[in-house]
Nucleic acid binder design. Structure first.
Lengths: 223, 223
DNA sequence: TAGATTGTTAATCGATTAACAATC
DNA sequence: TAGATTGTTAATCGATTAACAATC
């Protein structure tokens, strides 16, 4: 530990709140630091990190400075400490309770992804409209009738609602989640919610990213 | 049509190449314009569009100005024309040929998503290492042994390679795709490729977006 | 000590917003 | 015509990069 932040109160960040752009890069650092740990690499410089992740060393130092002073001049960053600290910032391994709405192909893929539960992101229940699915389980998690969703949220402390339904159903599901005190929505449905509410929404718009790629290909190969 | 761009050559853009940030917003416009078409709405102003999509009208006009002059002063934009034009820019409905690597849960979800083929994004073949999967089909598309991938790419004109493998395999798969002349990689594996090559890469880092959401929840509820 | 590398300030770059004349 | 709304230029804001003193 080389704690040297000007402000000794660990809660208050001398640089103000972390910009969303920085937050979005933290998981990338986190993943690569984990790789390094597995390879028993003990330290890394911003230069090396930038080379690997295709970012400038300057940007990495700027980003990491939001965490406080974790580096050591002339040495770099301690891989383990940095990994640990970013994990804390990201809220990894603190048992986030989640519900999944939609047990179709995508929902199945999400529910079966082992990394989430390993990292403390726990799917407690799945909801679907399809009577054939209700009563079944995915990866050990029971599927309930979606008309039980509000009641379920009322009875259990759930942090995150995952929406993996067809777009037609998404807005209604979001509304139920919000009305029942969810903290964040992880949305896979291709919709922009009308909701003006302070609930946090993180969109994964899969098809939009394919269109983006297609556009870039078209630009590159046809102009 | 109210074609009024200063430059009559439709290929050359008076504003220069479209920034990636603008490209990434086009699919959002596209999707909402499609909604409007289904509801028989014929015109939309940048103000209304911005209200719905939570963007400023100014930004929308800036973005759309990259397409040329599609709006009409005092009227707004013709929904159909704008939808059509953005579709062309995005390269939708032009039969992009794709291969999918990885027939696991996520691969299955991708291969089964009907919107892609409806929009001209066609998965021609699936590759996997798992002997139990080889010979099977997903949504009518055959699964081949991944050791046939290079040969397949040699024989067919494929534009996009989709990587939906575990992270360990991703880099090797990307290398095969690149060596065999793929134009773009749509990557779902949680890795940052080491490859410094001019192939276009579009990442969908699903778990990273969950960590981002978790971080934002933590910031909001615990500070 | 000498070399390496951080943390931070300043400079640059790019993206968003504001403003408004042009015009439908 | 009067009102609405674009397209575009200028102003602002924020993010990235450069530079370098501090220091391990």
């Amino acid at each position: 530990m080389s704690g040297k932040s000007k402000n000794n109160n660990p809660k208050s960040n001398p640089k103000g709140p972390m910009p969303i752009k920085v937050i979005k890069r933290l998981p990338i650092y986190y993943r690569y630091l984990f790789d390094l740990m597995e390879r028993r690499v003990e330290r890394i410089s911003s230069g090396k990190l930038g080379e690997k992740l295709d970012l400038t060393s300057s940007q990495i130092r700027q980003d990491l400075s939001y965490l406080g002073s974790f580096g050591q001049r002339g040495y770099g960053y301690n891989v383990y400490e940095l990994h640990d600290e970013i994990g804390k910032i990201l809220g990894i391994n603190r048992n986030m309770q989640m519900v999944l709405i939609g047990g179709g192909n995508l929902g199945k893929a999400i529910a079966n992804y082992p990394k989430f539960s390993q990292r403390g992101f726990l799917i407690k229940a799945i909801f679907d409209r399809d009577l054939d699915l209700i009563g079944e389980k995915i990866n050990g998690v029971p599927i309930y009738n979606v008309n039980k969703l509000a009641a379920y949220l009322d009875n259990f402390e759930i942090d995150i609602g995952i929406i993996a339904t067809p777009p037609e159903a998404a807005e209604e599901m979001a509304q139920i989640l919000i009305n029942n005190g969810i903290k964040g929505i992880w949305n896979f449905a291709p919709v922009t919610f009308d909701i003006r509410n302070d609930v946090l929404i993180e969109n994964v718009h899969i098809s939009e990213s394919l269109f983006t790629l297609s556009c870039r290909i078209k630009e590159k190969y046809e102009n």
